[in-house]
């Protein structure tokens, strides 16, 4: 049973060298897995301006004449333009729930959320994608300006370190107000415990995510105590966000009810995401980070397949 105020050790130095080494190793592992998976796959039909040759086609008006293959013209006396592989640049949006419930009473949730946000950003930066970091609580805060390139990893880490957790959660307002740019293909990661002021607030708020461009991933972070609390008898509960106090006489029967209700809550969110073709993953803080992260990326994320 956790302490009455289970303030877990909040490791502020979780973005240390060791973590970054693990992140690189994870990235390599991910690329190896992606290369293995890539065999037999069709390349994307889109063409771009990379150096990777893809195909020829007849020259048409308004084509860039610099793309004409003169050698082929010399040989066939017909104009052909060379097509190159398209290199897509994604805009990765990482929304981190910074409400009080993410930091208290289980700091593991905060740690997991920040680690995940940094890992996703790192992956995006390494992949030469644009990365934007947001904090959200009762509203979506000012984002870290879009970054690109591996050199911005430190900025991301610094930003993550500066994030302050507190306040209440208003999922509906946050998801409604969050409107990512449509200029680039977007990948949105929402890292939150999805606890609102009401039990069904999350599943109602999720509908706003359907208007977001690109793919959306909801990653629900929760502590195992929240799934199965170890409480019994006379207790007083304090909501860390609202400071609301509740006094209960908690029996094993009530515990079973609670567990069932919590599982129902998770299932309802899962169902709400699936019906909207939104990826949803539960992130229990006691499970290994790498496994969950690889599992997240292997679920068909464009971030994982790109580059």
């Amino acid at each position: 049973m956790p302490e009455a105020t289970p303030e877990s050790k909040a490791a502020e130095d979780f973005f240390d060298v060791e973590f970054l080494d693990r992140l690189r190793a994870l990235f390599l592992k991910l690329r190896k897995r992606r290369q293995l998976k890539k065999k037999g796959m069709q390349s994307t039909p889109a063409t771009g301006y990379t150096r990777e040759f893809k195909d020829f086609r007849h020259y048409t008006k308004n084509d860039d004449y610099r793309a004409i293959d003169w050698r082929l013209y010399a040989r066939l006396d017909r104009l052909f333009v060379r097509l190159y592989e398209e290199i897509q640049e994604y805009h990765i949006h990482v929304l981190v729930d910074t409400s009080a419930s993410m930091a208290q009473p289980f700091a593991e949730k905060k740690t997991a959320a920040l680690k995940l946000a940094v890992a996703l950003s790192y992956l995006g930066l390494v992949g030469q994608h644009r990365v934007s970091l947001y904090q959200m609580a009762d509203k979506v805060g000012d984002p870290l300006p879009p970054m690109k390139g591996q050199g911005n990893v430190k900025r991301v880490i610094d930003f993550a370190k500066r994030l302050e957790f507190g306040g209440t959660t208003d999922l509906n307002a946050c998801f409604r107000d969050f409107q990512p740019s449509r200029q680039r293909y977007g990948i949105v990661f929402v890292i939150s415990d999805l606890y609102g002021q009401d039990v069904d607030e999350a599943q109602k708020a999720i509908r706003h995510a359907t208007s977001w461009p690109g793919e959306v991933h909801f990653i629900q972070v929760f502590h195992p105590w929240e799934e199965k609390p170890e409480i019994d008898g006379e207790i007083e509960l304090i909501d860390v966000e609202t400071d609301e106090h509740r006094r209960l006489w908690f029996t094993p029967k009530d515990l079973k009810k609670y567990e069932a209700r919590y599982q129902q809550f998770l299932s309802e969110i899962d169902h709400a995401c699936k019906t909207r073709q939104i990826d949803y993953q539960r992130w229990r803080t006691d499970l290994p980070f790498e496994e969950l992260f690889l599992d997240l990326l292997s679920r068909g994320s464009a971030l994982a397949s790109g580059n």
Partner: peptide
């Protein structure tokens, strides 16, 4: 009584024996 800080009370509020 034992005091517990919890992330949210919404699940406890659904229990029938809750009193405030």
């Amino acid at each position: 009584s034992k005091r517990f800080s919890v992330s949210t009370l919404v699940f406890f509020k659904t229990l029938a024996r809750e009193h405030q």
